[in-house]
Design a binder for these strands. Structure first.
Length: 725
DNA sequence: CGCCGCAGGCTTTTT
DNA sequence: GCCTGCGGCG
């Protein structure tokens, strides 16, 4: 068998991974080392050389984008022989599994998926039903706890609360929320995974079937798996399944949402005879950029250890610019971009990467001013827009009357005289009878606990939904949505909306019709028994779509470091490298969180192909007040000989501000209190520190002091016993 | 019902 | 500083 077309384009370690003998394989793939290539070629190898039937292969990714990319590459590599090959996200695969086995999983046949927003609302409702004091127990935290528990595979009964009474409140919320989800046929994202895991656990025959069926498992971004996903994979693999895991512990940046890098080590421990392969040759960045990345990441402990190298030359040094403030930083970056464009460069080559979304604003303002095309990643996605969710809520309700989340949304949007008073009665009744809002509303519209007007309103709402459900079954998806928009008067509602965005809302609704008319359920959807409507609704929630269009157009890209993972750009501007921003203050304050920030910096640096520019500002407006900043510790961790200071760094020893450059608000505070930003001070209990920010006047003056050993504190000047040093 | 004003929060994001 | 959500009022 001639396998040259699968191996020729690969380097020796890549080849080793792709052609690995049967068994488990761990590929530690450094940034830019061709991991997707290895994954796709491995699948092709299994199919063409090992003669594994495509349906026996399950390839799991985290994002739809990654899954789509993989599918596209495989189509080319296998020249279209990918019928029946399973490539998908953890959630997508779990979803299909549950659609097919809803009975065994003990869930409603036409269950709906809750997105983060639906989940938040529902948890809040549940908390109100339980009379939980929202000031003491925030809905935010409740949602977070529930998701964290689910990600750990825990149900309310298996959570130990004896030592933590306050935890018990959250467990009760979790329990009540589970009840509400069950009644409404609703599954949140984590539930998809947890349910399918439990489905296998409780149904050995079914598990055996899937173990038999999917005996070749491939996992991308293995460092991002959480406890539940790992358990899911391990269960599915069993004794005979072969796992091919690809990951990079140095690019693990999602620990804060439950990802466990340790799963890489667990894989080596839990699975027998894992062959591991390191991919360290980098095909993306210049030698200098790789040196910087290597030096930085070498400061982390507990690494599996990798050192990126390239056959390319050193290339340019990394430019470092010290700006006055965030305005100056943006001005500098945009000037550089102008230069690049003026010398014939493409805007597409350029990315501005930052730690937090709030930073994009300054850049956007100046890009607009300079009339440069740009695109900001992140933000609201298409199917998460209020008007879209409003329209879909009617369809959801038509498909499943007991969907309380959809009911809450649709019942009074547009306003039809079903106010909070009425709804509260409906909600209480639903709670008392353990029924859905729909049933409760229908009951309320006949009994006399409500006024006539409210009864009528509820009654006509119910009629509307029945009508949509009745006529809808004969219509195509787009017609069905059109019918919703017309009959519910949603369209008029948005037309009347004169808060300035009526136009874009209507455009979005039109786009919804477009999307719906183009939509076709996949073979897998149909296979799992989904109707066109259910498939569309699931698609809307599981693949909420791009946040912004303009994908193909030539523009500068702005995004957070997190969203930049997996991408590469000719020229990267890494901005806001200041302690407190990047690394973020929270990760400095809390123990053991710095390494993840450092990995984030590593991800940022390794996005650049040839030009990397790092910026930091000496002062920055953050949460409303101006802060003095220090260059990020990560900047000092890059060897100086790799850096090129664009402007000599201002001496950190006084004067920090020339009189003219000092912002007015700061000057005021400075004059009155005799304190200057940067002033070293001593506090009787916190020790020595430096004034980094100030606000207020007279006896209300508060200063922020960054103490050497006690972190940052806001102190009221009149009371704090500060000594000037 | 809908508008307005105030308080509180505030890193990162996918599914 | 900006956004969200809530409560009060017309």
């Amino acid at each position: 068998m001639d396998v040259s077309h699968l191996l020729d384009s690969l380097n020796p370690p890549q080849r080793e991974a792709v052609s690995a003998a049967p068994g488990h394989t761990l590929v530690l793939a450094g940034a830019g080392s061709g991991k997707t290539r290895v994954l796709t070629h491995r699948i092709a190898w299994l199919v063409e050389v090992e003669h594994v039937p495509v349906w026996a292969i399950l390839s799991v990714t985290f994002t739809n984008k990654a899954a789509g990319e993989m599918r596209g590459r495989l189509d080319r590599l296998l020249s279209g022989r990918t019928q029946g090959l399973n490539v998908g996200t953890f959630h997508g695969i779990a979803h299909r599994l549950l659609r097919r086995h809803w009975r065994e999983a003990q869930i409603s046949e036409n269950f709906q998926i809750l997105d983060a927003d639906d989940q938040r609302r529902l948890v809040k409702r549940v908390m109100q039903g339980l009379n939980v004091d929202e000031a003491r127990y925030s809905p935010r935290q409740a949602v977070w706890s529930i998701n964290a528990w689910k990600d750990e595979g825990k149900r309310p009964d298996s959570i130990e609360t004896r030592d933590h009474p306050s935890l018990a409140v959250f467990v009760e919320i979790y329990r009540a929320y589970e009840g509400a989800c069950h009644r409404g046929g609703l599954l949140d994202f984590a539930e998809l995974l947890l349910r399918s895991h439990e489905l296998w656990l409780h149904d050995p025959a079914l598990l055996a079937h899937y173990r038999e069926r999917w005996s070749y498992l491939l996992v991308d971004e293995f460092q991002d798996t959480n406890t539940l996903q790992y358990a899911w994979l391990r269960l599915l693999a069993g004794q005979h399944g072969q796992v091919f895991a690809v990951g990079d512990d140095d690019q693990a940046i999602y620990g804060w949402r439950g990802a466990r890098v340790e799963n890489i080590q667990h894989f080596l421990r839990d699975f027998p005879n894992v062959r591991s392969v390191r991919l360290e040759q980098n095909y993306r960045s210049s030698g200098t950029i790789l040196k910087a990345a290597n030096a930085l990441i070498a400061r982390n402990c507990d690494r599996l250890g990798k050192n990126l190298w390239t056959t390319d030359g050193a290339g340019q040094r990394i430019a470092v610019y010290t700006a006055y403030n965030e305005q100056d930083e943006a001005r500098f970056v945009i000037e550089r971009i102008r230069e690049h464009l003026d010398t014939g460069g493409q805007a597409n080559d350029i990315a501005i990467l930052y730690r937090s979304n709030a930073q994009s604003r300054t850049f956007e303002e100046q890009l607009v001013q300079q009339r440069l095309a740009y695109r900001v990643y992140g933000g609201q996605r298409f199917f998460e827009r209020a008007e879209i969710k409003d329209a879909l809520a009617y369809l959801r309700l038509a498909a499943n009357r007991h969907d309380d989340a959809a009911f809450e949304r649709a019942v009074n949007t547009p306003p039809r005289g079903i106010g909070d008073r009425t709804l509260d009665i409906v909600r209480r009744q639903a709670r008392d009878n353990n029924s859905s809002l729909w049933d409760s509303a229908n009951q309320a519209s006949t009994d006399l606990s409500l006024g006539g007007r409210a009864r009528n309103a509820l009654h006509s709402f119910a009629k509307l939904i029945e009508q949509l459900a009745g006529e809808g079954t004969r219509l195509g998806l787009a017609e069905q949505i059109e019918q919703v928009l017309a009959c519910s008067q949603l369209r008029e509602h948005y037309q009347r909306d004169r808060r300035g965005n009526a136009e874009s809302r209507l455009e979005n609704l039109d786009e919804l019709l477009n999307v719906a008319s183009r939509f076709e359920p996949t073979a897998e959807d149909l296979d799992a028994g989904l109707s066109e409507l259910s498939a569309f609704l699931a698609h809307a929630t599981l693949e909420a779509g791009e946040a912004q269009g303009g994908e193909g157009s030539d523009c500068v890209q702005l995004m957070t470091l997190h969203s930049a993972k997996g991408l590469e750009f000719q020229q990267v501007f890494l901005v806001g490298l200041e302690d407190g921003l990047f690394p973020s203050q929270k990760s400095i304050d809390e123990d053991g969180r710095l390494e993840e920030e450092r990995r984030l910096a590593y991800v940022g640096i390794t996005r650049a192909r040839s030009h990397l520019t790092i910026c930091h500002a000496e002062s920055r407006r953050l949460h409303g007040s101006v802060m003095m900043t220090r260059p990020s510790r990560f900047l000092t961790e890059i060897p100086a000989e790799l850096l090129d200071e664009v402007r000599p760094r201002v001496q950190r020893t006084r004067p920090l501000w020339s009189h003219a450059a000092r912002p007015a608000r700061l000057r005021d505070t400075g004059n009155e209190s005799g304190l200057q930003l940067g002033q070293p001070v001593r506090h009787p209990s916190f020790g020595d520190g430096v004034v980094v920010s100030a606000e207020g006047t007279g006896k209300h003056t508060r200063v922020q002091v960054r103490f050497e050993n006690a972190g940052s504190k806001w102190l009221v000047l009149a009371f704090a016993k500060l000594t000037l040093l």
